[in-house]
């Protein structure tokens, strides 16, 4: 893991929500941290390039724009590599994880509408001859205010 100093940690921890809706938001952050606006920008750019920060931006409520589902498949181990690669090949698949369960492939399909999502699930089922479990969100419980990082 990359070395992060105290200011990096504050940038990561203290601004996961309530990012300033101010014409100069990074200047507002800089003021709180007691550093220059240019330093906030250069640090965020560095953290983003290193991959420590995915992005600075809005987290949109699921289904507010578009539709998505979580899909699961039980793929025979010998096929897993091939099927995983095929699934990842869809532009509509934005997360794809191998997990330690009989249902060993879990992926998120997101598209502009329900029909487009269904078409991808159907296509994967047809191409693999395997069942694709469709587990769309029924309700979201967590009001996502970010996630407190534990540094120790």
């Amino acid at each position: 893991m990359a070395q992060l100093d105290a200011i990096d940690r504050h940038l990561l921890d203290d601004f996961q929500h309530d990012f300033p809706l101010d014409p100069r938001p990074y200047a507002a952050m800089a003021k709180r941290l007691g550093i220059a606006e240019s330093e906030v920008l250069s640090r965020l750019e560095r953290l983003r390039q290193k991959g420590t920060v995915s992005r600075v931006g809005a987290v949109i409520r699921p289904h507010a724009v578009g539709h998505s589902t979580l899909a699961a498949m039980a793929v025979p181990p010998d096929w897993l590599e091939h099927v995983a690669e095929m699934v990842s090949g869809y532009a509509e698949v934005n997360h794809n994880y191998q997990r330690d369960h009989r249902l060993n492939l879990w992926f998120v399909v997101a598209a502009t509408g329900r029909d487009e999502v269904q078409a991808v699930l159907d296509d994967i089922a047809r191409r693999t001859g395997l069942d694709v479990l469709d587990l769309p969100m029924v309700e979201q419980f967590h009001i996502d205010l970010g996630f407190g990082l534990r540094w120790n």
Partner: peptide, 8 residues
């Protein structure tokens, strides 16, 4: 918009 901020 759930939140606007730094997404680690």
């Amino acid at each position: 918009v759930r939140r606007i901020g730094v997404v680690p």
